[in-house]
Design a binder for these strands. Sequence first.
DNA 1: GAGCGTTCTGAACACTGTTCGTTTACTGAG
DNA 2: CTCAGTAAACGAACAGTGTTCAGAACGCTC
Lengths: 239, 239
Amino acid sequence: MSQPDMPTPPWERPRKRQATARIPLTQERIVDAAFVVLDRDGYDGLSMRQVAAELKVAVSALYAHVSGKDELLHLMYRRLFEGADLPDPDPDNWQEQVKQFARDGRTRLLRHRDMARISMGQIPFTPDLLPYVEKLLAIFRAAGLPDRVVAIAGDMISTYMDGFTLEESMWQERYREAGDGSWDRMREEFQKYFESLPPQRFPNMVALADLMVDESNDYRFELGLEIIVRGLASYLPEK
Amino acid sequence: MSQPDMPTPPWERPRKRQATARIPLTQERIVDAAFVVLDRDGYDGLSMRQVAAELKVAVSALYAHVSGKDELLHLMYRRLFEGADLPDPDPDNWQEQVKQFARDGRTRLLRHRDMARISMGQIPFTPDLLPYVEKLLAIFRAAGLPDRVVAIAGDMISTYMDGFTLEESMWQERYREAGDGSWDRMREEFQKYFESLPPQRFPNMVALADLMVDESNDYRFELGLEIIVRGLASYLPEK
DNA sequence: GAGCGTTCTGAACACTGTTCGTTTACTGAG
DNA sequence: CTCAGTAAACGAACAGTGTTCAGAACGCTC
């Protein structure tokens, strides 16, 4: 019959669709595919067309299940929270509870490439995410923090979590672009760069070169968390 | 001769360029134009073509002075710092100095629409920005903070500044989309939304509705700043 | 088997960032 | 005052983007 690499002659009507996807398209499947594309091509490579290709489906088919790219991104953002479960407020342990919330958030953000970039730029007050906000507020209030502090504490924790992870993953991305060498090697080069700065103009950077680079991200994240929590704790009415 | 509204006949060679732009294109002028476009059309409307149109110049002309959109964005980011001047470290006044740094940063970020979105996603360790980082580190070290804290303190302040302003400007942007009504009206509606939540499922959100919305952004920013600074101060060796 | 909604397709629109060969304008030398 | 040389801007093109819409193919019920 017709050979695979030959063009279709104009008189021959194009083949009918050979086999319909048995599995119907759903938001779930679209989001799944989007994550595959995200992990493979990064945020800049995440296009509706790529997602459609991943599902072996026409681009326009997506728009029947998703209002547009914005909604798709938001659905991916929501997926981030799935399975998260904040504990009931324990006034004696609020600091650890808050930290655990942030740690968990960072872990989730790091699960997918460039996820932090998607997370930033999303407004977390969408109805389906309110329960999480609510519970975080509950923890702060149970701890006895003044309401005006509680009202900003949630924002601070989320912002720190997102911001830290974004910066972190941007380095990773830049490293990926550079391509060659291991992660440690890059860190080494960076440290060397800092140390090679003119010491009289940049005495502090030179002095801190190793600390700014050598400490693991986990440690730095934890320290920042502790700083915020201490700051919050300073607003407790009394000891 | 030829009438203005008539099409040019095919045999007639198109007119020569009527008048060259006297002022030569420079990075400066391109960045200027980019800010005009940014303020008018927002980040999503900021395209090379729009910038070129603003300068009444072909798109491709831009690429002689700027390697691409990435560099343009980075140049805009640098412009943000122009004229900024960190004071010499004063150990007795480090808290206020740090706060002032953050306040100034936020003010600059708010000067242009969507500027926070550009700022996020920029790596501040580019050579021309190192002096600022250096000076910030100097303030922290002079204050007597342990080096491992200093190594993350700068990041925390910048992240908070960027993150807060980003969130802030995203609300502004969303409000702009909605179009109608004043800013206060939107805040009112939002408060009403919070308050109308089922109180047994969202007791804390309902209780804090006014505080999360009513307090001005300036106040919230200041409070968050104080929280971080207090957290940092808790690492001072001794009183 | 006919009809009917869904669901998906394919083509199109109006954009995007970027590249490249060509044309233009300006400058300095003879 | 002419003429080359050089730098700058042009215009068209490429490959890609998000989104829309008429129509075709499908599974299902009658």
